[in-house]
């Protein structure tokens, strides 16, 4: 842009930046600082149930009280209480296993989408995305219909003589995995499809011309070239699944207690806000690495285009 236009539109530029910037600082960044503060407060029986925030009108004394009142008790509890530890580990386990399953079943679908004739591709991609636009509650509910004791899955398995007695599907780990894989399927398929679709097909032809069998071409050429898509899909699934609340709550049992539910119970059930805040801070710390990785990739991908 020329120097002249730069000087004439600085005021509107400033407004363009300022409005969303201020909004995000106020409603995205500031809340995290408050969570951090409350996670360091003692739980009380007041309304709201935590020791007050910074009392600025008390001046220097207020500031001293503020830092004096900070305590790490809530964090200490996180490490000593087996329930918390177990739900963090369970969350990470569920997220890792689900992401692996998603990759395993999403890859063939994305690959087929990318290889489909051009005029079919748009409609096929739309078909994959369409369920993502319907409420995830609907999608979970659809599976409750199918998985319940006298539901369709048991009916089908009984009719096929695979089982001779109805099996319990709901309130098991399998149900949680089915629900999560089902809900996050488009999040895995779309990034994979985006990289596979851009892949230079002449590389595959070259490999074939040089005598590589198709499976070898696939593992030595296609998969390495699609690594950016694999990383994007895996991050896009792993991060939110770790904090998932609805799937384990509606489809799982007490054995599939994930950190989202523990936080929820701490907050709404026990009304222990400081404990819930500490749980959120630790979850955020655990996920900080993957989130930063995802942001960097996203920002770079957009700049490159």
């Amino acid at each position: 842009m020329g120097d002249m236009s730069k000087t004439t539109n600085t005021r509107s530029s400033r407004l363009i930046v300022l409005a969303p910037y201020a909004w995000l600082v106020l409603f995205f960044l500031a809340p995290f600082l408050i969570v951090l503060k409350i996670s360091l407060s003692q739980s009380t029986l007041m309304q709201p149930p935590y020791a007050p925030l910074l009392a600025l009108d008390a001046g220097w004394q207020g500031l001293k009280d503020f830092f004096g009142a900070l305590s790490l008790d809530n964090y200490a509890a996180l490490f000593t209480d087996a329930l918390y530890r177990r739900s963090y580990l369970k969350s990470l386990e569920v997220a890792a296993v689900s992401t692996a399953i998603l990759l395993f079943i999403g890859y063939p679908v994305a690959y087929a989408l990318a290889r489909a004739p051009r005029r079919w591709q748009a409609i096929l991609v739309l078909l994959v995305v369409l369920p993502f636009w319907t409420s995830f509650l609907i999608r979970v509910y659809a599976w409750i219909n199918i998985l319940q004791r006298d539901g369709l899955l048991n009916d089908a398995l009984l009719a096929l003589h695979i089982i001779d007695r109805p099996t319990t599907w709901l309130a098991t780990d399998s149900a949680v995995y089915i629900g999560i894989v089902y809900s996050y399927f488009p999040f895995m398929v779309l990034p994979l499809y985006a990289t596979l679709e851009r892949m230079d097909e002449s590389l595959l032809e070259a490999a074939a011309d040089l005598g590589a069998p198709p499976w070898k071409t696939f593992f030595l050429v296609t998969v390495p070239l699609s690594l950016p898509g694999i990383a994007a899909g895996a991050l896009l699934c792993f991060i939110p699944i770790t904090g998932e609340f609805v799937m384990p709550d509606l489809l799982g049992s007490s054995a599939t207690l994930m950190i989202g539910q523990t936080l929820w119970t701490e907050f709404f059930g026990n009304r222990d806000w400081p404990a819930a805040a500490a749980l959120a801070v630790v979850l955020l710390v655990i996920l900080a690495g993957p989130i930063l990785l995802y942001q960097r990739r996203e920002a770079r991908a957009l700049e490159r285009r």
């Binding site: 409603f27 408050i34 991060i239 904090g243 806000w273 959120a280 979850l283």
Partner: peptide, 25 residues
């Protein structure tokens, strides 16, 4: 700014929900 724009895309809802509630309170 870029970080704040991209983070909500993957941020677990439970964290966003809790932090906004604490802000409102």
């Amino acid at each position: 700014f870029a970080g704040m724009v991209y983070a909500p895309l993957v941020m677990p809802e439970i964290i966003t929900g809790l932090s906004l509630l604490l802000l409102f309170v």
